[in-house]
Design a protein around this nucleic acid. Structure first.
Length: 559
RNA sequence: GCGCCAAUAGCUCAGCUGGAUAGAGCAACGGCCUUCUAAGCCGUAGGUCGCAGGUUCGAAUCCUGCUUGGCGCACCA
């Protein structure tokens, strides 16, 4: 906001320097404007002089003194006295900008006008992005790992919406195949078991109690009428329906709504699978060996070729995966984002190779891989195993710590990092718990407004507030932080990194708590100052609310 | 054996395209409530950024090798 104004000014001065023959345009767009870490280094700092010196040296072979370049640059930069109070040269040639204190309040007007869209960009014209996530096959309730993925995917989708994309959320699943047959057999075994009949539980069957519940529901509905059914498919169907209902309930509870559920089956029914194979065959990228069909992935930088159709005639997971992504392309998305768990990494190169082979631009697909989650209870890791069904479901997790904590905690780490979820901390009602800290911040601001009414110090019209009264470093810092929000959202969206929103919110809430403790917003003896501060607080609360919205966490009015 | 990810304070982690003396939060220690929620704030202490080289004005960040942990490496998904 303020920064982009400065950015423009710096660029125009850079161009002036080029026009005056002070330096060439070689360094254009390669220098950066950043926020220095230390006090005394200004509000922003620019490394242009060093970059220019470097480029000039490369071009001419002559040594160029960065500080000298900085001096020339600063001569030009100084002229904007509306924006800048002071420009200094420091260190090896950094240019430090000290903004005119009055500039910061500009952002408040923007927040006031844009309100619940502050920080978000206008719709991009026709830019469609598809975010695929969760995509769990209906073999059991959503577990912790799916939870991280669900929250990550949904928040990424929210971020992309915030920067103007038309976003669609998609869930891809497969209700055929071996896993599902095992599910059917497991259900059947439990059914017979509950009826007191002899049964053989599959060796690799699903041992979770939910299978027993499903079996019981079959008994409730149809009694023992299915005893002689030999087709596990019937059991599979019932189990699948029940489990999907459960998954759907969990997702709804998490505030996540998918636009599409894409069933792998479609790919077979519509003949896309055969189509892809024949296209690849025509291109000479497919061959037969040992009764199986192989895809020449080695031609796309991989170690070896991979089987796409088993000798049994059944495709391996790669083929439908490639095919599915081809369908995404055909549906015309500008960008496709896949959220996968780290265990699915092996499919990524295969899909990319497949798409490239089919003539699509694979760079339009971005895969976000997230590492696993470890649950910690009393400082010890909670051991989980899917097969033994000792896993913790998302529903159980939400029951224990609440949805807001679940969402917030899953976003506290970047996707690349393993995530340690501390159940004790998540339940804490105090500043040790980051969700609580941020939400309490929001609630605390809001209560000032109700108090304001009681004390007869109301904010009045925004246009009548005198923000020149806000001169405290803390006040300016809050305005600066508010002003940085839109760029933060842009960056977090571009890098698919919702955890940055979390860090920002913790920081902003921290600034608020500090201010709240140090100064009083409401002072009947200083009405004008109180009004300005009230408006500052109103804007702050809106940014907290908008930020929490991006990660799907509620912003309570009181706690 | 090969590939991907990670390695930063006692613990959990930030650090965006390399930037100036390394950042939070917890935990530890010491303070702050007659005033808008102390569900909070302030202060102190804490670091060879896994190890070794290299690239350059400048490296936690980029390159190479190594060590440790996680996940993969199927005619499972």
């Amino acid at each position: 906001m303020i920064k982009s104004q400065l950015q423009q000014w710096v660029e125009s001065c850079f161009d002036k320097g080029v026009a005056q023959g002070l330096w060439s345009s070689a360094a254009a767009n390669s220098y950066v404007l950043e926020e220095p870490k230390h006090e005394g280094q200004g509000d922003y700092a620019c490394n242009a002089a060093m970059i220019i010196a470097g480029r000039e040296k490369k071009a001419t072979g002559k040594k160029v003194n960065p500080r000298k370049v900085a001096e020339q640059f600063v001569e030009l930069l100084r002229l904007n006295t509306d924006l800048l109070a002071k420009v200094e040269i420091a260190g090896p040639g950094f240019i430090n900008f000290f903004m005119h204190p009055s500039v910061w309040a500009q952002v408040l007007a923007v927040v006031d006008t844009e309100d619940n869209t502050f920080g978000f960009a206008a719709k991009k014209y026709g830019q469609r992005v598809l975010v695929e996530f969760v995509s769990a096959n209906p073999t059991g309730p959503l577990s912790i790992g799916h939870g991280r993925q669900a929250v990550l995917g949904d928040s990424i989708a929210r971020l992309l919406e915030a920067v103007g994309y038309d976003v669609e959320r998609e869930y891809y699943y497969n209700d055929a195949g071996r896993q599902m047959r095992v599910l059917g057999a497991s259900t059947q075994a439990r059914y017979l078991e509950l009826l007191g009949e002899e049964s053989q539980f599959p060796e690799d069957g699903y041992q979770g109690d939910y299978i027993r519940d499903i079996a019981q529901s079959i008994i409730d509905d149809q009694g023992d009428g299915m005893q002689d059914v030999t087709d596990v498919l019937l059991f599979k169907k019932v189990a699948e329906k029940a489990i999907f209902k459960d998954i759907d309930g969990t997702l709804t509870r998490m505030g996540i709504k998918f636009d599409h559920y894409y069933n792998e089956h479609t790919l077979y029914d519509d003949g896309h699978i055969d189509e892809v194979v024949s296209i690849l065959r025509d291109k000479g990228l497919v061959y037969e060996k040992d009764d199986a069909t192989w895809f020449k992935t080695s031609e796309f930088g991989q170690e070896k070729d991979r089987v796409i159709i088993k000798s049994s005639g059944e495709p391996t997971y790669r083929l439908p995966d490639i095919c599915y992504h081809r369908e995404k392309f055909k549906r015309g998305y500008d960008w496709m984002v896949d959220i996968f768990g780290a265990d699915h990494i092996a499919t990524v190169p295969d899909v990319m190779a497949g798409l490239t082979a089919l003539g699509y631009d694979a760079s339009k697909v971005t895969v976000v891989l997230h590492q696993f989650v470890t649950l910690m209870r009393d400082g010890k890791q909670v051991k989980m195993s899917t097969r033994k069904a000792t896993f913790v479901t998302i529903d159980e997790l939400i029951d224990e710590v609440g949805l807001d904590a679940v969402r917030f905690f899953f976003l506290m780490r970047k996707a690349d990092s393993q995530l340690e979820f501390d159940l004790e901390v998540a339940k804490e009602e105090g500043k040790e718990n980051p969700v609580f800290y941020v939400q309490y911040g929001h609630a605390r601001v809001r209560t000032i407004f109700t108090k304001a009414v009681e004390k007869g110090v109301e904010p009045g019209d925004f246009s009548e507030a005198d923000f020149s009264l806000l001169t405290l470093p803390e006040e300016l810092k809050i305005m600066k932080a508010i002003g940085a929000f839109p760029a933060l959202v842009q960056g977090a969206a571009a890098d698919l990194a919702p955890h940055r929103i979390v860090f920002y919110l913790r920081d902003l809430a921290g600034q608020f708590h500090h201010f709240y403790n140090e100064y009083r917003v409401l002072d009947p003896d200083q009405v004008a100052l109180s009004r300005a501060r009230l408006w500052l607080m109103i804007c702050l609360s809106k940014v907290l609310r908008n930020g929490l919205g991006l990660i799907g966490v509620s912003a309570p009015e009181s706690m």
